[in-house]
Amino acid sequence: MSDQTSAIQEGAKKSGILWLTLDRPRLAWHAWHDGSIYLVTGGEEQRLPGLESLSRVRVTLRSKDNGARLVEFEAAVSVVDQAAAADAVAVLAKERLNARDSDHLTERWARDSTVLRLTPVT
């Protein structure tokens, strides 16, 4: 495993937030699962305009302790079939804090939101 891959994995596991370079730098919460970052946008969830139409995005992970930049990298963006990736969606739902409808969160996402996978390109 390369140093960059190790830094990405460690940073994404330790911190539940990251920065995406979109129309401007955007803070987003996420979950790390099986070598990729998963996040949700749209509906009542975080707004990440234009992300789902990109093929790649620039990601910055920062230290949870002091906010210092740990690693920046390009990630391939793909829309997740929520039914086919139920395990990843469950991990993402577990990381969702303060949801008004925790018991029905994944059903709402399937109806109103888009789940995306960001796979590091190293």
Rank of each mutant, 00 (worst) to 15 (best):
T21M: 14
L27W: 15
T122F: 08
G11F: 08
I8V: 15
S55Y: 09
A110L: 03
S102F: 09
A68E: 14
D81S: 01
D112K: 04
A85F: 06
A68L: 12
L54F: 12
D101S: 07
A93K: 01
A90G: 04
V89R: 05
A88I: 01
E52K: 12
T106G: 00
T60P: 02
E52P: 05
T122C: 14
K94Q: 13
V79T: 15
A83L: 03
E45M: 11
L61P: 00
R96W: 00
T21E: 15
D103R: 06
S53H: 12
L105M: 13
W32V: 10
T119V: 09
S55G: 09
A76M: 10
M1I: 11
S2L: 03
V80D: 04
A99E: 03
L92K: 01
N66F: 15
A93N: 02
G67Y: 11
D3L: 11
G50N: 03
V57P: 06
G67P: 05
L54N: 12
R117E: 14
D103W: 01
H33K: 05
A86M: 00
E107T: 09
A93L: 04
T119G: 03
H30I: 04
G42P: 03
A68S: 13
S63P: 13
T21R: 10
K64V: 12
L18E: 06
S2V: 06
R62N: 12
M1Y: 08
G67C: 09
A28G: 13
R96M: 02
G35S: 13
W109S: 00
V77P: 07
I8F: 15
R56V: 08
L61M: 12
I8D: 04
R96P: 00
S55I: 09
D34E: 15
R26K: 13
R26C: 12
R58G: 09
A75L: 07
M1P: 11
V59S: 09
R26D: 03
Q4D: 10
T106E: 08
V40H: 04
A83G: 07
V77K: 04
K94W: 09
F73A: 04
L20V: 11
E72P: 00
A7F: 08
T106P: 00
S78T: 15
S55C: 06
N98A: 09
V89A: 07
K64T: 11
L97Q: 14
V59M: 03
D65K: 15
L105H: 01
S78C: 06
R117I: 00
A31K: 04
R24M: 07
Q82V: 14
R47W: 08
V91C: 02
A12V: 11
S15P: 02
E45C: 12
L22A: 11
V89Q: 06
A84I: 03
R108L: 05
K14I: 06
V89G: 01
R26A: 14
A90H: 05
Q9P: 02
Y38K: 01
S53M: 10
G35T: 14
H33N: 10
N66K: 12
L39K: 05
L116D: 05
N66P: 10
L51D: 01
E52H: 13
R96K: 03
W29K: 01
L22M: 14
R26S: 14
T5Y: 07
T119C: 03
E45R: 05
